[in-house]
Write a protein that binds this DNA or RNA. Structure first.
Lengths: 214, 214
DNA sequence: TAGATTGTTAATCGATTAACAATC
DNA sequence: TAGATTGTTAATCGATTAACAATC
């Protein structure tokens, strides 16, 4: 299933296809053409066909795409058929919000441990998981086969924590701190810079002429 | 300052420039060349110069860019010199995390009201702001000159709320619900689809060959 | 002035769209 | 078979990079 040489632009769009197909599936829609899907998603049918064909021929000429099959296939491409063990670092408001996101488990993401610098939180439970002190991270990651760390702490703390995580063999980091973490090329980082997102909204409000069509 | 015809790619990068320049400024760095900044940010110097020149000549040949001046100018381009009045819709974990983000005020974003469907929350305070019932939204938006609504509620609730907001003249929506909100072209929507972000991370973990260089 | 570095044009690269032959 | 729609190639468009003249 894994295909190399997929452009970033395509990867960025895949989860959105997955979301729309999931909704169609829930609505009981059995088949859809690239044309119909393109109208739903506000993209071109050509782009949909090009994107999907990076991974194989999922459709059938004269028919279209089987919604349920395509949904499953994109899920596999995204690795959602596999289990991932996560830890959360930072049990503040944002961390709690992320840990509490119920759908994660449905997609194979299991929160296994929560860590925080605040000693008062030690032993308290977030979603049934006791909060542990930061120094326990390395042992926990190794013993529990942790793939992904969710970083929801200030940037000054995030940099050394990322180093620790890399040293104990983490594979991926979902980064919410306001810094671009530098890691070896084998470690994948996906950052969500919330303040940058808000600034983009601010830009479009300040410069409405910039996007006349949307 | 507002310039039209700026590409999406440039707008996406602007807040990142702003972040790096802010850090340089805090470190007391006075001037920087596109070359130096490019090494710091892992982009090309050419791209930096092209991006900045969309908005004017902020540099000086033979010298480089004045950090503090460039920081201020990009801030103005992003509209961060202006005040924005926000409301939060949805006082769950994520909503609380967003309301509690202290730096917002520093950038001119003021949280004025919080709304939630849960009657038990009514009158309780989030960051000093009492939670109000959803039906109070229209009056509150109009009376308090609200620009931006932050939507942190499930998608089924988000769709009708967005309609209400549009009807009472909201200018921008910062959308955290898992749906693409459909609004008139005069209303700006910036969506943060957290689950899509996590799926992209999952993809890169499942298909490591896809990004050999980062 | 000489050296450095921008601003900007031209060249390249990559991503999107259009078109159509293949095929169900 | 005829009609529909994919898979895929070719054309277009846009974004990035390279190069260098302008200029501080």
């Amino acid at each position: 299933m894994a295909v190399k040489g997929i452009s970033r632009a395509v990867v960025r769009r895949l989860p959105r296809y997955f979301r729309y197909l999931g909704e169609l599936k829930d609505e009981g829609v059995e088949k859809i053409s690239s044309q119909e899907l393109s109208e739903l998603m506000n993209v071109t049918a050509s782009q949909i066909r090009q994107d999907l064909n990076n991974f194989g021929g999922f459709g059938q000429q004269g028919y279209g795409y089987n919604v349920s099959y395509l949904y499953d296939e994109i899920g596999k491409i995204l690795g959602l058929d596999q289990r991932h063990n996560l830890i959360l670092i930072g049990a503040g408001n944002l961390g709690k919000a992320l840990a509490g996101y119920a759908n994660f488990e449905k997609r194979g993401f299991y929160m296994r441990g929560v860590f925080d610098v605040n000693p008062e939180l030690k032993g308290k439970k977030i979603r049934g998981i006791p909060v542990m002190p930061m120094e326990d991270i390395p042992e926990f990651v190794k013993k529990n086969n942790i793939d992904i760390a969710v970083i929801a702490i200030p940037k000054t703390a995030a940099v050394p924590v990322a180093r620790t995580l890399v040293d104990c063999g983490i594979r991926g980091i979902w980064n919410f701190s306001h810094v671009d973490l530098e890691v070896p090329p084998t470690v994948m980082v996906e950052s969500v810079h919330l303040s940058e997102s808000l600034m983009r909204l601010s830009y479009t409000l300040t410069n409405p002429s910039a996007f006349p069509m949307q």
